[in-house]
Amino acid sequence: MDIVGWIAFGLSHAIVPILIAAPLLLYRWVRDTAVHWKAYGAKRVGVVEVSGLLIGICLAATTPLPGGPLTFDTLLMAGGPWDFDAAAFAELAIERVGSAPDRLAGRLIEDDERLNLSLGIGVALLILAVRTTLGFVRSGRRRGCLAAAMDLVIAVMTAVSTLYGVLLTLWLLNRLNFWVLGMAILAAQEYRYNVIGLFHRHRHFRLPRAMLPLGAPVTTGRRITVGGSAHGTGRRSGV
């Protein structure tokens, strides 16, 4: 096989994972754009994402899954209801995401005796309404309208991404099977190093100083301690 053939072979196999990850990458791009917008900011994005996540969970709870209730056999067995190719998954995801709002509305009206879904949607809409109202009060009418539009975009994209993420995870569990552990390791490395930008760069966990290797740098305020000696990182303090 010549070079052109190898390139065509690689592209034909790479386009499928790219298309599968594209919705999540698009969501991350829109979110990062909102975070760096001065009239919006990271704190507002986080609040609106909570609203969208609650709606997405309600959408996932009312979406019928292939094979009915999830069990170990129906999810992982070869030839089972989740054993289909990427093209079939794309059709499934488009159909489920497109029909999810109607199904959720039907469940809210006809079959929500315990009010679980109503409570989730109500809390999500309340969070979104309070956040949007505060935006109008603090930013004025013009910026408030733009920020309110961004609120709706972030909330809708978060809800859709949540439902899509659930379907994608279940399908990948069947396709990867025992390779799931390897994918979990890759996801952990992506969380640490943020190579393709799926996770935040912030480190949420730090080892205690006593557990760090001998000689490891430890940041303390404006100074870094290495191997017992302190080195300034900026202006010298008066102490």
Results as ranks from 00 to 15, higher is better:
residue 214 L to H: 10
residue 150 M to A: 15
residue 77 M to I: 11
residue 149 A to F: 13
residue 207 L to K: 12
residue 24 L to A: 05
residue 144 G to P: 07
residue 115 L to Y: 11
residue 236 R to H: 11
residue 21 A to Q: 05
residue 8 A to P: 00
residue 185 I to Y: 11
residue 170 L to V: 06
residue 236 R to P: 04
residue 191 Y to I: 09
residue 149 A to T: 15
residue 97 V to R: 01
residue 183 M to W: 12
residue 219 T to N: 06
residue 223 R to Q: 14
residue 156 V to G: 04
residue 5 G to Y: 05
residue 68 G to M: 00
residue 177 N to A: 14
residue 32 D to S: 07
residue 89 F to N: 04
residue 185 I to Q: 07
residue 140 G to L: 08
residue 26 L to Y: 14
residue 4 V to Y: 11
residue 115 L to W: 14
residue 75 L to S: 01
residue 110 E to I: 02
residue 168 L to Q: 02
residue 96 R to K: 13
residue 142 R to C: 10
residue 5 G to L: 02
residue 217 P to R: 00
residue 177 N to V: 03
residue 116 N to R: 13
residue 53 L to V: 07
residue 220 T to K: 11
residue 30 V to L: 14
residue 26 L to F: 14
residue 126 L to W: 11
residue 101 P to Y: 01
residue 178 F to D: 14
residue 174 N to D: 06
residue 3 I to N: 12
residue 228 G to S: 12
residue 209 R to L: 08
residue 47 V to I: 12
residue 115 L to K: 15
residue 185 I to F: 13
residue 201 R to K: 12
residue 149 A to N: 12
residue 195 V to Y: 14
residue 222 R to Y: 00
residue 86 A to I: 01
residue 155 A to K: 00
residue 151 D to E: 08
residue 39 A to K: 03
residue 194 N to W: 03
residue 113 E to S: 15
residue 5 G to A: 07
residue 121 I to H: 01
residue 104 L to N: 08
residue 195 V to S: 10
residue 8 A to E: 13
residue 85 D to P: 01
residue 107 R to E: 15
residue 238 G to A: 11
residue 168 L to W: 10
residue 46 G to C: 00
residue 96 R to E: 09
residue 140 G to I: 04
residue 75 L to I: 06
residue 37 W to S: 09
residue 37 W to Q: 05
residue 18 I to F: 14
residue 45 V to F: 07
residue 201 R to E: 08
residue 65 L to G: 04
residue 108 L to N: 10
residue 226 V to W: 01
residue 145 C to P: 01
residue 92 L to R: 02
residue 114 R to S: 10
residue 33 T to W: 13
residue 174 N to Y: 01
residue 224 I to M: 13
residue 220 T to V: 14
residue 47 V to L: 13
residue 29 W to T: 07
residue 145 C to R: 15
residue 172 L to P: 08
residue 12 S to H: 06
residue 8 A to D: 10
residue 45 V to N: 09
residue 120 G to K: 06
residue 63 T to Y: 07
residue 131 R to P: 00
residue 151 D to N: 15
residue 128 L to T: 00
residue 35 V to I: 15
